[in-house]
């Protein structure tokens, strides 16, 4: 007896919920299905240049003009760490730069 009502409610609420959240709806979900395939295609394209990153070092020197001389490069993963639990501490003053 309640099933049609529940279904209709779910459909209506579902439709109403979409805009308030991240959006995308059915189109996005459909895209997500072949996400892996597309990601694989993207990686292939990135590698097609024949260039792969083995090292990326931040340049800490200040001053002077900056020139972009690199090319499209591959990913470098970073390790993950365990989540931390915050304890109650007093905040510092509002931020300011020396």
């Amino acid at each position: 007896m309640y099933i049609p009502f529940l279904c209709a409610t779910a459909l209506v609420i579902g439709g109403a919920a979409a805009p308030a959240l991240a959006g995308g709806s059915a189109q996005h979900s459909a895209a997500a299905v072949d996400h892996s395939a597309q990601a694989a295609g993207h990686s292939a394209a990135a590698v097609a240049s024949g260039v792969a990153t083995v090292l990326a070092v931040p340049l800490l020197v200040t001053g002077g003009a900056l020139m972009i001389t690199g090319a499209a490069l591959a990913d470098v993963s970073r390790p993950v760490s365990a989540p931390k639990t915050a304890r109650r501490v007093a905040p510092n003053a509002a931020p300011h730069l020396d």
């Binding site: 260039v51 792969a52 990153t53 083995v54 090292l55 990326a56 070092v57 090319a71």
Partner: peptide, 8 residues
């Protein structure tokens, strides 16, 4: 981050 890159 502005970086120096070394490729393969």
């Amino acid at each position: 981050v502005f970086s120096q890159i070394t490729d393969a």
